[in-house]
Computed example of a mutant assay.
Amino acid sequence: MSEIVKDAWKQYLSQLQLHPLRTKAITSGVLAGCSDAIAQKLSGIKKLQLRRLLLLMLYGFAYAGPFGHFLHKLMDIIFKGEKGKKTVAKKVVLEQLTSSPWNNMVFMTYYGLVVEGRPWGFVKSKVRKDYPTVQLTAWRFWPIVAWMNYQYVPVQFRVLFQSFVGSCWAIFLNLKARTVAIKAA
């Protein structure tokens, strides 16, 4: 079994080297799909909602993976040659003040319009109502992840790390939403 894992990892590293954007996009899509499948099962959904799963995979593939790829390239350009904890702190602050709010807004809009198929007026109202809470919650969790990512993770694995943690985060949020819905019922 360990030979299979070693070979798969070797192949992944090769693809990451040859086709970094494509590999990160596919990885992000697959992790988003796995996350949603787990979240659906843990939240008590009897039959897997395949459409929802595929739309979340599409989000990971078409947006989250490529966005992360180019974000980390941009960070390397902005902080070219800078090292140390001060630079890591600057990267975390910059990410949390720019891409974190943007990504939450994009995801909430995508989820409402595309995944749930809601009308624009409903989605706009829901985002207006829920966005501040979502962003404040994100600022309690994601700076720690960003710090670890910039401090300890090699640049080629940052999107993988972020996508993996994002998958765990999505499962947590799904379960939290289910708990709130059960309490309300």
Rank of each mutant, 00 (worst) to 15 (best):
G112Y: 00
P143I: 07
V88M: 09
P66V: 07
A37M: 09
T109Y: 05
K126N: 12
K90M: 13
W120V: 14
M105N: 04
S35W: 10
M105T: 14
P66L: 04
D130V: 08
L136D: 02
V114F: 08
R140F: 05
S35P: 12
T109A: 13
V127E: 11
V115H: 01
N104P: 00
E82N: 04
S43Y: 05
F107K: 03
T109V: 01
S100C: 14
G121R: 10
F67H: 11
D76N: 15
L53R: 03
G112N: 01
V93G: 04
R51V: 14
S99R: 00
V88I: 15
S125E: 14
I78F: 08
W120Q: 10
G112E: 13
D76S: 15
V134N: 00
D130A: 10
V123Q: 03
F67W: 15
L136Q: 14
F141D: 01
G60V: 01
R128F: 14
L42Q: 08
R128D: 05
K47I: 10
L53Q: 02
L136T: 12
G44S: 11
L48E: 12
K47S: 10
G33D: 01
L56C: 05
T109R: 03
L113D: 01
D36K: 10
G60S: 03
K129D: 13
F141M: 02
V127S: 11
L97E: 01
